[in-house]
Write a protein that binds this DNA or RNA. Structure first.
Lengths: 244, 244
DNA sequence: GAGTGGTCTAGACCACCCT
DNA sequence: GGGTGGTCTAGACCACTCA
């Protein structure tokens, strides 16, 4: 397909196409409300099959970026310039922030090796007392706090030389390096009001958060991490396409 | 395809297949943890293409019923069976409550015909000043408040004889009767702390809610309702399967 | 009626898991 | 190596929207 070489790799054509269209939307090449090229056009332009085009459009639709209308075309959704993430799409927070045109940064606040708690053994399906690495991190976009994250990674079988790197940057990136890329996560969504969560000069007042309480699984079905991420209400926009 | 005639109709083959497999899972024909027939098997059994089979499997996976593993097969999820309100699954609140084994009840608090506000015209894509029916309702499960819902339905083209019925029971049911069954909704998820939301003797203190701010669309892509539903934190469990 | 998205097919090749 | 899912193609027909 005729897009920049940097996009090539082992990511699927559909994903590459979605990324490309998304970046064009972000850059303003396709403005909100505007109609995107038809599926047939996209087939010709990118030299892919229509199935691939449709897969990409469905991804963008699930992210709330485009609105596909039968018989009319696909239109760029009008959304507030905030960070908009499709809830059902699993990706690193860093990547999501970067894709929305902001600069992500992770700041590690605490890091501790300790036995897993009862909750953690249950969520992760590991033996009682198994060793885990517990992290407390702050997530920033353009130096503004967008979330506080509390992550727990089982250390059994985890490469020793990579342990210190956990939480230094993107957790996903380190997990991927260790060969256990999360491919699925089961998340619970909660509203939390708690002044004791968070830290730093930008600590939000009042402490109102959308909590994603989630267990990450590898492709083989084993739990690789348990995360509680508190997203500062209003700074991160979660959208879900619900269908029946 | 070779399934019961009652399933035939205007629903897609993929949906019929998904429904069929789901009912077999529910009936216990396929037990949790068990492997489903391979995609190739399903292609032969149901006499459909592999794309159709895969579409159906992806639907079941998104509902958390099936776990598809590359190279191994598709397995019936064993974390299922419990109480789960899949966020990406669009259904009426009443049905969801009933499926969770509780008795739903809707109590209409207010109902007003009025011109749409600026926000509503934008969300619903209707002309400025178009008439809408605005509802304020309380959602109960076993007589306990689980949510407060603020719904707006455009009245242009809506059957006059059904207007009074809107909000009396399930909104979905009335919309379906009017021939405009919501098939998709784009929802934003927020955490809200607001003491002024809600009413009645059970009004929660403090007022902490998970807000689903959503626009419902018909199959044809026209907006049929705009809802802001405030779910009392802790009483309704939202789960999302996230994949990449 | 022309153009758009919605669905479906048959076939191909690749990546992964297991034994 | 054999079976399984992951991705992709080219082509077909249908349903819907809009001028």
């Amino acid at each position: 397909m005729s897009m920049s070489a940097s996009l090539r790799g082992r990511t699927s054509l559909a994903r590459q196409l979605a990324e490309d269209v998304r970046s064009r939307i972000m850059s303003g090449e396709f403005a909100p409300g505007e109609r995107l090229p038809s599926e047939a056009d996209l087939v010709r332009r990118y030299e892919v099959s229509r199935v691939t085009v449709r897969t990409a459009l469905r991804t963008l639709e699930a992210q709330g970026l485009v609105d596909v209308r039968h018989g009319s075309g696909s239109f760029v959704s009008d959304f507030g310039g905030g960070i908009r993430a499709g809830l059902q799409e699993l990706r690193s927070i860093s990547d999501t922030i970067r894709e929305m045109g902001h600069e992500p940064r992770m700041e590690r606040h605490a890091s501790e090796r300790r036995p897993a708690t009862a909750t953690e053994t249950a969520k992760l399906g590991i033996p009682v007392g198994a060793e885990v690495l517990a992290l407390e991190r702050m997530v920033l976009a353009d130096e503004q706090v967008v979330a506080y994250s509390f992550d727990v990674v089982p250390l059994d079988g985890f490469p020793v030389e990579l342990v210190h790197q956990l939480g230094a940057g993107s957790l996903f990136a380190t997990l991927a390096e260790a060969g256990i890329m999360p491919s699925r996560a089961l998340a619970e969504v909660h509203a939390i009001s708690d002044e004791t969560i968070g830290w730093g000069p930008q600590k939000p007042v009042p402490g109102l958060y959308v909590l994603l309480d989630q267990v990450h699984f590898s492709r083989r079905g084993s739990a690789v991490a348990y995360s509680r991420t508190y997203f500062v209400e209003g700074r991160f926009q979660f959208v879900v396409l619900r269908t029946n």
